[in-house]
Simulated scan of single mutants.
Amino acid sequence: MKKHLPLMLKIISGIIMLQTLFFKFTANEASVDLFTKVAGENEALMRIGTGIIELIATILLFLPKRTWLGALITIGIMSGAIFSHITKIGIIHNNDGGALFIMAIITLISGGILLLLHKKEIPFLNL
């Protein structure tokens, strides 16, 4: 199980982040509405920028010597998503039953566990 847990966490995080990219990059109406609530007139910049950062984080999660960096970026981006849901978007968005919020929490937790599992690889911590 110890060998399989990191892979499972990477897959869970990767699937969640990658499946939202289609909506972000194609200017899906629900995605545009969500990012308009958060960024106003800068919606497109934030929507596409967030998608690019999530793509980079996902790629880094699967690079053995950079998993820690992918996890750290994942934690940052999901913390922002959760904060936005709590302060501006609302837990439930477009009658999704809180699915986006729950996926952000799952991804945040997965990223946190991955970061803990790979803490010895973080160069500036010298553990």
Rank of each mutant, 00 (worst) to 15 (best):
G40L: 08
I105A: 08
F101L: 03
I86M: 15
L115Q: 00
L21F: 02
E43R: 09
I15W: 08
F124A: 12
F23D: 06
L63K: 14
I102R: 12
K3Y: 07
W68K: 02
A39C: 07
H118P: 02
P6K: 05
S79K: 08
I73S: 00
D33M: 14
I122A: 00
G90H: 09
K119C: 11
P6F: 00
F124H: 07
D33L: 14
E43D: 12
A27M: 15
I15F: 15
I106G: 02
K3H: 10
K88E: 14
M1Q: 12
G98D: 04
E121R: 00
T67R: 00
N95K: 12
W68V: 04
I52S: 10
E121L: 14
V38L: 13
L55G: 10
I11T: 10
I82K: 04
E29Y: 12
L108W: 15
G111H: 08
K65S: 14
V38T: 04
I89Y: 07
L108E: 09
G76F: 06
I56Y: 00
N126L: 15
I106H: 05
I89E: 06
L127A: 09
T107H: 07
E54F: 00
E29K: 14
A104T: 01
S13V: 00
E41P: 04
G112A: 03
L18G: 02
F101Y: 09
D96M: 10
I105P: 13
I106A: 03
L63A: 12
K37R: 12
T26A: 06
F22A: 15
T36L: 11
I86S: 09
V32L: 04
I48D: 07
L34T: 09
A44Q: 14
G112R: 03
L69W: 08
G98W: 05
L125E: 00
G90E: 12
E54A: 07
W68R: 03
I11V: 15
I56W: 01
I102W: 13
L7P: 02
A71I: 07
T36W: 04
L61Y: 05
G80T: 02
T87C: 11
T107S: 13
L34W: 14
M46R: 01
R66D: 11
A44W: 10
L5W: 08
I15E: 07
A30I: 14
A39F: 09
G14P: 08
S79L: 13
F23E: 11
I73H: 01
L116G: 12
A81C: 09
L117W: 00
T74E: 06
G76S: 05
L127P: 08
F62C: 00
F83N: 09
I16Q: 00
K119A: 15
L60A: 08
A71V: 07
G97L: 01
H4L: 14
I77P: 00
F83P: 08
T26I: 02
T74K: 00
S79P: 08
I86W: 11
I89C: 03
E121S: 15
T50G: 13
G98F: 02
I77A: 04
S84R: 02
A27G: 11
R66Q: 11
P6E: 14
I102S: 06
E43G: 03
I59A: 09
H93W: 13
T107A: 11
D96V: 08
